[in-house]
Design a binder for these strands. Structure first.
Ligand SMILES: [Mn+2]
Ligand SMILES: [Mn+2]
Ligand SMILES: [Zn+2]
Ligand SMILES: [Zn+2]
Lengths: 138, 138
DNA sequence: AGGATAAAAGCAACGCTGTTGCAAAAAATA
DNA sequence: TATTTTTTGCAACAGCGTTGCTTTTATCCT
């Protein structure tokens, strides 16, 4: 299990460091998404704030995690389960935010719909965030 | 035109003040959405930063403007053209972010689709943000 | 219109967030 | 193991967003 983490880092051409292992582990043992603040609370005593920022940024660039837009000035991050590669993400799934537990989940099996846009607009990417009550809270 | 602004404020049970008039005017003469920073640049020399924050917050509460989620820690705001009331918004349209001009637009005529969720999840609200090239830039 | 009352704006201060440059430490490489 | 490269931690900083309090402004009532 721990070697899985090392392997994933190496596969992404990243050197294996304690902070990267720890932060990646947090994502693996977490069902929902994590905001920067969450990670800092769970791993921040061990690592510097700046390291967390840089690690998240690196993971996004390498296609290990992806961002989820929010309406409250706090980006959330979640593991890419699709085959995202360095520089190019392929996460086309819907995200769910629970109004009860306030968790954010990737609905990996729910693909984003195609939207018919007015003429002149071209669609390159689409983000869908559904709010409601999650399966754990209902 | 200026009386329109006063009327809208009164209709929302808000006292008519210089800052509210000015900020509301900015939204009316703007096609796309505005971030807090934009408003501060355009009206910030006349009004305090705090006033801008409080005005935006009030406008959202009163159903005059709505927020648009982003992936870059900067909420954007746009006029509600639907019949949003105090406390309850009814904006069910798609938002568009242009990768060229970096503007955000409300596609008021494009309604958000219904998403089939896994069992256990209930849908209360849905946000759809499409990224691509807008009609002005294509 | 003028005064009383309620509401909003401005000010100051503060904590939190995210960034940058640089030196020290750790990991990869040979 | 020694060298090179990469990452981390530290310090400092700017900007964001919030809060309490005072002053100013708008509304309401006479
Ligand atoms: Mn996801
Ligand atoms: Mn809109
Ligand atoms: Zn929940
Ligand atoms: Zn454009």
């Amino acid at each position: 299990m721990n070697s899985d983490i090392k392997e994933l880092l190496k596969k992404s051409q990243l050197s294996v460091t304690a902070s990267r292992e720890k932060i990646l582990q947090l994502f693996l043992e977490q069902e929902g998404a994590l905001a920067h603040g969450d990670i800092e609370k769970k791993a921040g005593e061990k690592f510097d704030r700046v390291t967390v920022y840089r690690t998240l940024q690196t993971f996004v660039e390498k296609g290990i995690i992806h961002t989820i837009p929010t309406s409250d000035n706090s980006i959330r991050y979640a593991l890419c389960k699709d085959d995202c590669a360095s520089g190019h993400h392929h996460d086309h799934h819907v995200h769910f935010v629970c109004n009860e537990c306030n968790n954010t989940f990737c609905l990996d099996d729910v693909v984003t719909p195609t939207i018919k846009l007015p003429s002149g607009y071209s669609q390159e990417h689409i983000e869908v965030v559904v709010k409601g009550v999650c399966k754990h809270c209902s």
